[in-house]
Design a protein around this nucleic acid. Structure first.
Lengths: 247, 247
DNA sequence: CTGACCATGGTCAGACTGACCATAAAGAGG
DNA sequence: CCTCTTTATGGTCAGTCTGACCATGGTCAG
């Protein structure tokens, strides 16, 4: 920025910034908080209590405070909505900014959208709005408030794409997980079935993706052979990527 | 947004939005306009004439107008900076939003950054600031104004990554181009050399990436065998991707 | 004890990649 | 005119990776 002073609206002020020679906007953050739970991709939504879009589901979010960045605002809102104390390790990623002039019918609002990935999916129980916050299955969502359908679709697309070439999937898993659970994340987000032996081979052949927890094993719900437990490794990217089935 | 009215700063106004119960921000766009010219990746920069960062190079950009989206603002600024009349077909992509409270020492500014890819690289000659706008080689840039180093680095990383799995490279090329020129785009952006026969094979084996212009051929500067001309095909993504050398 | 279920290991053909070699067509320079 | 350099284009070949399988082993529900 800072190069367009001479074209700033609201007056031809050479001093530009200092005279507020521009239209001020409200800046908010919107959060697409995703988790894999009960065999489905779920998203944290709040029910709107008043117009516009009263009764509709909406993404949690709120205003950016005067002295905080959008990232900080997103973390703050996330902590408030979910009631989680430890949000230091979770994956929070800026999606993009939505700035259509009429996206909020009341006034001009520019919103920075984030995607957050939660492993465990506790029931939301924070202060304030969190009382109305709820996990909903990604499919079979009615139309959301504002342009939140679009934001959610973008979040889904981004996360699905990042699973291909990054180790992001572990962010959906608890600290220790089985390869079956990890595969389930991929299958749920992508909506496709994967071949289990091939998935294992690929994941284990990628150095730093996962590392086995020595000795430990978990019985996945009691059914079948106990699976070995793994932790997320140090790697962040997958080379070569784990591509979606092309069909 | 629109869900955090009760937590809006500046007063516990239940009416929230209508009372401006928030801090207004200035919203700008910053443009990382990239091209491949003279065998190098180049970026359009403007020289700052006043403090802060007087004399430093900065990304072009400006304020978002009251009734326009950030995308529209980016297109408007781009047209003004480059003086191009036809900016309908070029690739303009939102990068991310930079909102650190002190990124501009004068006041709080939230900036939405875009990457634009130009094929031909005409000398900038628009109205207004464009007089000072100039193409500079991507490497050997001194430190830029504000956090524009960071923005430019993010743009480079994004474009480099998108070359792998999309047909974006054709956006750097004129409407008709040779495979050698297309390969040159990859090599310049990635900073690595590619094997020519293998590159050809890969590109031609990807349906919809490029389509040959029948009959036409161009002598690439007079040297060597004339090359066949190609146009961008209808495809947008590369499946499987064209990965960077791992070294 | 048996079958269902899941984890794990292995095989095998086809696709893809990287590293090459070979040839063709043009200009540059003697 | 001939040769060298340069670029485009075509092909080979071995190694790797992938997708589609088959097989085995451990655990629980009957």
């Amino acid at each position: 920025m800072a190069t367009g002073e001479s074209r700033a609206p609201g007056g031809a002020a050479p001093e530009g910034y200092d005279k507020y020679a521009f239209e001020p906007f409200a800046v908010t953050v919107d959060l697409a908080v995703l988790t894999v739970r009960a065999g489905a991709l779920q998203v944290l939504l709040v029910e709107r209590g008043r117009e516009p879009y009263a009764g509709r589901w909406a993404l949690p979010g709120g205003f950016v405070l005067p002295r905080e960045s959008a990232e900080a605002a997103a973390r703050r809102e996330l902590a408030e909505e979910t009631g989680l104390s430890d949000i230091s390790g979770l994956h929070l990623e800026q999606l993009r900014t939505y700035s259509e002039p009429d996206r909020d019918p009341r006034m001009r609002i520019v919103s920075v959208a984030f995607a957050a990935l939660l492993p465990d999916a506790p029931e939301p129980h924070g202060g304030g709005d969190a009382a109305q916050a709820q996990w909903l299955r990604f499919n079979a969502l009615g139309p959301l408030a504002f342009d939140h359908d679009r934001i959610l679709a973008d979040a889904h697309e981004r996360v699905g794409a990042k699973l291909e070439y990054s180790c992001l999937a572990t962010s959906f898993c608890p600290p220790e997980f089985t390869l079956g659970e990890l595969q389930h994340v991929y299958e749920t987000v992508w909506g496709t079935a994967l071949d289990r032996p091939n998935f294992r081979r690929k994941v284990l052949a990628t150095p730093g993706f996962v590392e086995q927890v020595p000795g430990a094993a978990r019985l996945t719900g009691g059914r079948g052979k106990p699976a070995a437990l793994y932790r997320a490794g140090g790697a962040k990217v997958l080379h070569p990527p784990l591509l979606r089935p092309t069909s």
